[in-house]
Simulated scan of single mutants.
Amino acid sequence: MEKTDDALLQRMHHDLIDSFDEELELELDDRALEAYAGEGGGVFDAEHKAARRLYFRELFRLQGELVKLQDWVVSSRHKVVILFEGRDAAGKGGVIKRITQRLNPRVCRVAALPAPNDRERTQWYFQRYVSHLPAAGEMVLFDRSWYNRAGVERVMGFCTDEQYEEFFRSVPEFERMLVRSGIQVIKYWFSISDEEQHSRFLGRIQDPLKQWKLSPMDLESRRRWEDYTKAKEVMLERTHIPEAPWWVVQAVDKKKARLNCIHHLLGQMPYEATEHPAIELPKRERHEDYQRQPVPQDIIVPEIY
Score class of each variant (00 low, 15 high):
E2D: 10
T4H: 13
T4A: 14
T4C: 14
T4Y: 07
D6Y: 15
L9I: 07
H13M: 15
H13W: 14
D15C: 06
L16T: 12
D18C: 09
E23R: 12
E25H: 13
L26H: 12
L28Q: 09
D29N: 13
D45P: 02
Y55Q: 09
R57V: 08
F60T: 10
L62V: 03
Q63A: 02
V67S: 05
K68S: 13
L69G: 02
Q70K: 03
D71V: 01
V74F: 07
K79C: 04
L83W: 01
E85M: 13
R87Y: 04
D88I: 01
A89F: 01
G94D: 01
V95E: 00
V95R: 02
R98D: 07
R102D: 11
R102G: 08
R102T: 13
P105D: 09
R106T: 10
V107S: 01
C108W: 00
R109G: 00
V110Y: 06
A111L: 05
A111M: 03
A111R: 07
L113G: 08
P114W: 02
A115P: 13
A115Y: 13
A115I: 09
N117Q: 03
D118M: 03
W124P: 00
Y125K: 03
H132D: 06
H132M: 07
P134N: 10
E138R: 01
F142L: 05
D143K: 15
D143S: 15
A150V: 02
E153R: 05
R154M: 05
M156K: 13
Q163W: 04
E165C: 06
E166K: 10
E173Q: 09
F174P: 00
R176G: 10
L178Q: 11
V179S: 06
Q184K: 14
V185A: 11
Y188M: 12
Y188H: 15
Y188V: 15
W189L: 12
F190S: 11
I192V: 06
E195H: 06
G203V: 00
Q206R: 15
D207E: 08
P208M: 05
Q211H: 07
P216Y: 07
P216M: 06
M217H: 13
R224D: 04
Y228I: 02
R238S: 03
V248G: 03
V248I: 10
V252M: 02
V252W: 05
D253K: 03
K254T: 04
A257G: 09
N260R: 13
C261G: 00
I262M: 07
H264N: 14
M269H: 04
T274F: 03
E280V: 08
E280K: 12
L281D: 07
P282E: 05
E285S: 12
H287D: 08
E288W: 12
E288I: 14
E288A: 10
D289M: 08
D289I: 08
Q291F: 08
P296T: 00
I299C: 04
V301A: 14
P302E: 07
P302M: 09
I304C: 08
I304Y: 13
